[in-house]
Design a protein around this nucleic acid. Structure first.
Lengths: 195, 195
DNA sequence: TTCCATATATGACGATCGTCATATTGAACG
DNA sequence: CGTTCAATATGACGATCGTCATATATGGAA
């Protein structure tokens, strides 16, 4: 190979990054190859020099979006823990924060995409399933007391469902009210002894 | 009007009914006018004799799907109550049943569509919001004890999130195991005194 | 039976979709 | 300074999208 390999890889990464945002904004089927390439500053024809198919890009994009969303969430949790919050309270208040309500493109992709999952290709389904499992494990590690792994699955379901409904109500007063109500209620019922 | 009005109305209803199933199977954007008309036994050109636009059909379809899904659910709940279940246990075991897991086209449309909501037109968003409110109210009426309306919103979020994740795992062993685990856990934590 | 309003069908429009064959660029080497 | 080959751009393909103007079929009223 004559030229530096970093050149093509950088473009590849930029396309994946753009797609990772696009699928959270518009859904699996909401954006086309042309949209993504244009947003990445390229023309749509050169797409197949980087990916075997649109589906292959989507698989990479969901993995990228999952890792990125998880990192952002964990960072937000750790900031809250540093200010004295328990891991569970930090998790709930971070995932159900007004910030997360509004930042669809950079937030948790599961809440946006899980409903579309059953209609996707096997490869996309498998990639999404891995992200769901990772999310449940992240929740489990922050449950108070000696809760069962069982409980992590319920809490994960509640967090995802809550954020979806709040977003359905909009990034406005009704949506934020729904979110703060769920935040308070979840913390009260899971850690009745403390705030 | 010379001819009987029931003729056009019957066709209209058949189109809406077909669309109500189609949007649950393939999502808001997953089906086109041509698909729906063909499934209803008509050609796509005559569509605009019945609806002002595709969006107008979608609004009617989500309302139809919401009412139909709710009726099916309530009927399933009442059958369980007749066999001695409490209203809450009947609700949880009906919404999180293996049957509901598999019957996407005729089940609760909220679990399929809420994730796509923020991207839809104002009219579709408003129609979907009404169905979400109706669902929360249906849950509230079946909570045990003197729970707050607050709690209905959390339970509704949990039910919707759980069904979505279970469907993401598939209508197979993993999905059904997830569902039965949530069923048991929810009933145990909300009605600790009884089964 | 004849007529006519209504319901449905036909076929076309511009746009956009995923895909790909081919042309052009651009940067490192001899 | 050319040469060469990887990286990107161009432009086209068949299909499908929502929409609509227009033509045909249908069925009750006369």
């Amino acid at each position: 190979m004559k030229t530096a390999p970093s050149r093509k890889e950088a473009t590849h990464a930029r396309i994946v990054d753009t797609a990772a945002r696009a699928i959270r904004r518009a859904g699996y089927d909401g954006v086309g190859v042309a949209d993504i390439m244009k947003a990445a500053g390229l023309t749509h024809g050169g797409f197949y020099a980087h990916f075997a198919s649109r589906d292959a890009l989507i698989v990479e994009a969901i993995e990228q979006a999952g890792c990125e969303g998880m990192q952002t969430l964990v960072a937000s949790i750790e900031r809250r823990e540093a200010r004295g919050a328990t891991p569970f309270k930090a998790l709930v208040s971070a995932y159900l924060s007004d910030t997360h309500l509004g930042s669809v493109e950079t937030g948790c992709p599961i809440a946006v995409l899980v409903g579309e999952m059953p209609r996707q290709s096997d490869a996309v389904q498998a990639a999404t399933r891995r992200r769901v499992q990772a999310f449940i494990e992240m929740v489990r590690a922050r449950l108070p007391g000696h809760r069962a792994a069982d409980e992590a699955e319920t809490v994960a379901s509640t967090l995802i469902g809550t954020l979806q409904i709040a977003r359905a109500l909009g990034d406005t007063a009704p949506g934020r009210a729904f979110l703060s109500g769920r935040r308070r209620h979840l913390l009260a019922s899971f850690e009745p002894g403390e705030d």
